[in-house]
Structures are given as C-alpha cells and as structure tokens.
Write a protein that binds this DNA or RNA. Structure first.
Length: 589
DNA sequence: CGTTTTTGACCAGCGC
DNA sequence: GCGCTGGTCAAAAACG
C-alpha cells in the first residue's frame, strides 16, 4: 500500500476514469468493479460509461450531487432526444424506483432502455388491476410503440456516436502517422549529429558502462530537465554528492539520447545513490517517453545553446485547482520528502517525489494558496522515466510537453496565440477557469488555473503583460469554441489511451482539431463542462491533457522557433478572445 | 518489518 | 561575508 500518496490509484476519483475511458462507446468499462462504477445493472453495452459517471459519481465529494432531473447531465444527444430521455427517465424513476439506491444512479443510467423492464413490470402490475382488456391492450400497444421508437432512437444515437468514434480514430491515426514520420526524421538527424560529433565515444562508454538501460523508446527531441538536471540540482544537498556532480553532468551530457539511446553513467549512478532508495541503474528500465529529454546537450554544435539551456532547465508545470484534498489526484504515486514554510504563505509547502519507479526524477510541490486555501497549487517538475498508468499519463505528459515547450525556446508568436486560444477555448466552456501559461525566471512554468474565480489576487499578472488580440486563429477555432471542447478533450483522452498502450509519448497536433469542428455533438460540451466544473481533480486531469496537446503543438512547430528567453505569459481572463502576453524578467520565482 | 512521514539540519543561490 | 530563502537529505517516528 502506498501511504504517501493520497492519490494512489485507488483513490483516483473521476480523473483517472475519465481519462481512461473517454470515447469508449460500446465497450464495458474496465473499472466496473470499482465501487464507483457499480452503479446499476443497466450499465450494459448500450450504455455510455462516459455519460454515466459524469452525472452519477457518488464519490465526487467536491461537488454536491447533481439534481435528479438535471437534463444537462444527460445532454449527450440532441436536444429533443435529451428531453425525451429525461422525461422517460424521470417517469420511470417516479413510477418504480423508490428503492434505497440513490435515484441519481438508477435512472440516469436507464436512458430509455430500462423502460422496457420497468414498464413491463408496470404493465404486469396493471394487469392485476381491474382494467378493461381493450384499454389495457391499447395501452400496451402504445407503450410498445413508444419503446420501439425509443429503441430506434437509441440505435441512431449509437450509430452517431460510433461514427464520431470512427472519425476520431481516423484523425488519431493520421496524427500518429505524422508524428511517427516526424520522429523518424528527427531520429535520423540526431544520429547524423552523433556520428559527426564523435558520438562513438559515448556509445563505447555506454557499452562498457555495465548496466545499460534503454532510456526511452522515443525521444521527443528537445531537452526538458529531468535527469541531468536532477543530479545537479537534487544532489545539491551534500558536499560529497556535489563533488560527483560535475562528473554526472558530463556523463549525462555525453550519453546520447536519441531513439533507443542507452544510458548508463557512473555519474548518474553516483548521483542516484544519494536517493536513499538505491536507484542506480534501475533508472529507466522501461524507457518511457517522458524520460530524459536531456537529449540535445551532447551535440557539439549546440553546446552554447545547451549551456544556456542548462541555466534554466527546471521547467515546471503548475496546476491550480480547488480541492479539499491534500493533493490533487494525478495517478502517480508520490512520497513526501520534505516540507517547508515558504515565505509569504502561511501554508507549508510539501515536496513529493515520484515513487512509481526507482530513480524517477519527477517531483512536485504542493501548497495551498495563501489567499484562498481551498486552492491547491501543484507544481510538477521533471519527466517520468517509467511507464505510467493511464491515469497518470495526462499529467506526466503535461510536465514533459510543457517543459519541452518552455525549454526548447519553441514558442513562436503564432504558436503562442494558437495555443493560448486552444487552451482557453477549451477551458472556458466549462467554467470561468483561466488557463495561464507563464514562465517566470529562473524556472519557466506553465500554470493552469482551474479555479473558477478569475480573481486577480489569485492570478497576479506580471506588470509588463501586453494584450494581444486574437489573430490568425483558424475560423473554426474562434467560431465554435463550444464544439472545440469535446474535440480537444476527446483527442487528448484518446491519445492518452493510445499512449498507455504504446508506452510512448505522443503529442497531438491541435491543427487537427480545427479541421473537424463538428466531430462531436456539441451538446456533449455541456455534459463535459458540467463534469469539469464539478470536480477539481477532474479539471486538473483535463488541464494536463490539454496542456499535453499544447506541448505537442509546440513540439510540432519547434523547427521554426523564435526565441523565448524572455518569459511568456498567456492568459485569458475574460473569455472574450483576448490573450495576454508578457515578457517578464522576474529575478525570483 | 518494511515503507512512509516528520522534521531538523545542511547546502546553494541570491541580495545586501 | 552574512542573512535569507528554497530545496533536499536523512535519522527518527509513525504507520500498516
């Protein structure tokens, strides 16, 4: 049992589920054994698990249970059908479901299908009454007709959803193909550089270094911060370690990272021994894509750039969400290794380290907001070097992608606008949440504000922010924000599920979303929005997914970078389409 | 007994 | 050089 993380898999409430099974329309959820999934026996193949949990999760203690007849929660389909479903469901509930089971769980799952059984029993009971056979027959016929119509409608909706799923699949495949092509090209380039730069030495060192561990299946390319930083920074504490740090630094720099790079370095071993848990060569047994994006530092041609990067390699991803829990649920296992009182905040800051794999460099800081203690500020740092459960994929991708985005200096102005728009468009429908991508020296940070209050105290702007009107945004981005939401969402989740299967990182290209603005029925947006607004953990997970997409977009455009030595802040606090951009040069975090 | 949390101490970086 | 702050370590305590 993992005590340290209140967010162990068991406790993962909505977020993990949602991220797991977003678009599964006709398959039974794997987690149905989970108490949270044991809703009703009606959760059959015709039921959409997505829909069910959104409105029914009894464990969502962060928000009050939704009203029984809230049609919005069932608003997966068209308006008229929705009303029909709601009406019939309500009728069914009022007629027959007076059991002790929470009614929300019962009839919301029924949609129309359960009417068959309930009404049948109802008919049966009516037979007992003394009703004339004619009227009884008529009544039965009517009901039969209604049920048949309902069944037909459900079939159509099912077909519609299937089509949607198919569309998403097709898009995903295209994206994946594109991504793989890019990665292949990148890999070839890196190989060339390695050959030119005398990489043979590294390889020799790696081969003779004893335990060789594949660092990653695929390197997303640009450096973030995790491993190499980790040694130098984390080892900071002890002088003994410090003496070893330079070696580690050099070693890690020399060890190539391209695709399937092998990593082993005495320096790293030395470093990792610091960690009480004897990490050593276990570093990245599984080679996860999040691992060591430290890649580029060996390339001789880039040494200057790399040195510059080394000075700001601690990219961070911060998520603000309202939560009563001590930590937001992100699917990973964490061990607390420290707690400090931070200046200016009466709430202590807790330091956690990922314990899902020995030597995982990912850390996070959790601190409550001084102004509003219901707001939990979680800052992630580093990249996982191990496979992650699907529930953790989104957040982990966030750290990877965001760090990559910030550290690679890849944010062109066009990208900034595009991504900020994407993000804010994605978040706005669900609440007044603010998505803030900010980078303040010395550690660039991507911050997602998922608290629903655009309180300026909570989201201080840097004084030198500028307002940049939206421009150059694809029509379908600015025209249909509501419809964009499910696209982003679905794509992110779908990607995630793919990731978990492939055990590799994968970032989506947001432009793909813009190409199919109507893929998902718009009414889905309402349901998703409601769910998002309902649970902070969920919002955090969503934020992670979205951010990962954005990071992917960034990576996709890495080739035509401008510089981002200046810090960038993108925010949208008004929802009217304006994006705030800033260059701040704050000295301290 | 193994793992996690707590907590005081240590260290680096930064500003004065 | 000194003090402050953030980050980390590691021994001891707590927990299951």
């Amino acid at each position: 049992m993992v005590r340290g993380c209140g967010l162990s898999m068991d406790s993962d409430p909505i977020g993990s589920f949602f991220l797991h099974k977003p678009i599964v329309l006709n398959s039974f959820p794997e987690d149905t054994n989970h108490p949270k999934w044991k809703l009703t026996p009606h959760n059959n193949m015709d039921t959409i698990p997505f829909q069910v949990n959104l409105s029914c999760s009894p464990n969502n203690h962060h928000s009050p249970p939704p009203p029984l007849h809230n049609t919005t929660e069932m608003d997966f389909f068209s308006d008229n059908t929705n009303h029909n479903v709601s009406a019939s469901a309500s009728a069914s509930a009022s007629n027959h479901h007076h059991s002790t089971t929470p009614p929300t769980l019962e009839f919301k799952l029924n949609t129309g299908l359960n009417l068959l059984t309930t009404n049948t029993s109802s008919d049966q009971s009516m037979v007992d009454d003394e009703i004339s056979p004619n009227s009884e027959d008529r009544r039965a016929e009517n009901k039969l007709a209604v049920l048949q119509a309902e069944l037909e409608r459900m079939k159509r909706e099912n077909q519609k959803l299937r089509d949607t799923l198919h569309q998403v699949n097709v898009n995903y495949d295209a994206l994946q193909m594109h991504f793989m092509n890019l990665m292949q090209q990148k890999g070839e380039e890196v190989e060339e550089q390695e050959v030119i730069g005398g990489k043979s030495e590294e390889k020799k060192q790696g081969e003779s270094g004893g335990v060789l561990v594949p660092r990653q299946f695929m390197d997303l390319g640009l450096a973030t911060n995790a491993d190499t930083d980790e040694p130098s920074s984390s080892s900071g504490g002890r002088s003994q370690d410090r003496s070893g740090s330079p070696n580690a630094e050099v070693a890690s720099k020399e060890l190539g990272t391209s695709m399937n790079e092998n990593v082993n370095d005495e320096g790293c071993d030395k470093e990792k021994k610091e960690y009480g848990r004897g990490v050593e060569s276990e570093d990245s047994p599984s080679g996860h894509a999040f691992a060591g994006d430290k890649v580029p530092r060996f390339s001789p041609q880039k040494s200057n750039v790399e040195h510059a990067e080394a000075t700001m390699r601690k990219a961070r991803v911060s998520v603000r969400a309202r939560s009563e829990a001590p930590m937001i649920t992100d699917g990973c296992q964490w061990r607390k290794y420290g707690q400090k009182m931070a200046k200016g905040n009466p709430c202590p800051r807790a330091y956690y380290r990922c314990t899902m794999a020995a030597g995982c460099p990912v850390r996070k800081q959790v601190q409550r907001c001084a102004e509003d203690r219901t707001v939990l500020n979680t800052t992630y740092e580093g990249n996982h070097n191990h496979p992650l459960p699907p529930a953790a994929m989104a957040m982990a991708q966030t750290t990877s992608s965001a760090a990559r985005m910030l550290l690679s200096g890849s944010m062109s102005s066009a990208d900034s606008i595009m991504n900020a728009n994407l993000l804010t468009r994605a978040l706005l429908p669900c609440s007044s949440s603010i998505a803030t991508i900010s980078a303040s020296a010395p550690f660039p940070t991507v911050t997602l504000d998922l608290t629903q209050s655009p309180n300026p105290l909570q989201f201080p702007r840097h004084p030198n922010q500028l307002q940049i009107p939206l421009q150059g945004i694809p029509q379908n981005f600015s025209n249909s924000p509501a419809s964009l939401m499910p696209q982003i969402f679905g794509q992110a989740l779908y990607n995630q599920s793919k990731f978990s299967g492939l055990q590799m990182s994968h970032d989506a290209d947001p432009s793909q979303f813009g190409n199919h603005p109507q893929q998902v029925p718009p009414h889905l947006t309402d349901t998703v929005s409601a769910a998002i607004a309902a649970d902070p953990n969920f919002t955090a997970a969503l934020a992670a997914a979205i951010t990962s997409i954005i990071g992917g977009a960034q990576q996709h455009n890495n080739s035509n970078n401008t510089n981002n030595n200046g810090n960038m802040t993108l925010s949208n606090s008004t929802g009217n389409g304006n994006i705030t951009s800033s260059n701040n040069t704050n000295g301290k975090q």
